[in-house]
């Protein structure tokens, strides 16, 4: 029974590993930031699925299409800027707006220096827990009284 058990568990483990391996091969995206995408080209990114994170929407840059479905917009990491075209099917999340932090998946089109995003996830800027009072004042409003602490 022991050896049978060992064989049984081996089959399950091998099956799971095979499943995971093929799964990874079929749906992986390279995680990049604007810096690594636009910086000195370390490798070929053309045709590769990329997950782009660590960027925010440049305020005022969102240009919607006719039916407010697939916009073109600019993203920035504070230094660099890039254009993004949304090509996905689902509507963009409600949190997609000026200054929203984004995580996107899609492809980089080098000829147009543009990112074509098939999937966009957005975090609303108000969720950002800023340590900086200046920033805080910008989002929260002018102070009424400086009471000190």
């Amino acid at each position: 029974m022991r050896s049978k058990l060992a064989i049984g568990s081996l089959i399950v483990i091998l099956g799971v590993i095979a499943l995971i391996m093929t799964g990874v091969k079929q749906s992986s995206a390279r995680h990049m930031t604007l810096d690594s995408l636009l910086g000195p080209p370390s490798e070929d990114v053309a045709g590769r699925r990329i997950q782009l994170a660590g960027c925010t929407v440049v305020p005022g840059s969102i240009e919607w299409d006719e039916y407010r479905h697939r916009p073109v917009f600019q993203i920035t990491d504070g230094e660099r800027q890039m254009q993004v075209q949304y090509t996905g099917n689902a509507i963009l999340p409600d949190t997609f707006q000026d200054r929203a932090q984004l995580v996107m998946e899609g492809h980089f089109v080098a000829e147009r220096a543009r990112f074509e995003a098939e999937m966009v996830m957005a975090k609303c800027p108000s969720k950002y827990e800023g340590e900086n009072y200046e920033e805080h004042r910008d989002t929260v409003g002018e102070p009424t009284a400086a009471t000190g602490n």
Partner: peptide
């Protein structure tokens, strides 16, 4: 933790 000033209004919970 307290802020050194009292803002007029807060950020609020995201509408969604």
């Amino acid at each position: 933790i307290r802020l050194p000033f009292t803002p007029q209004d807060g950020n609020g919970l995201n509408p969604i």
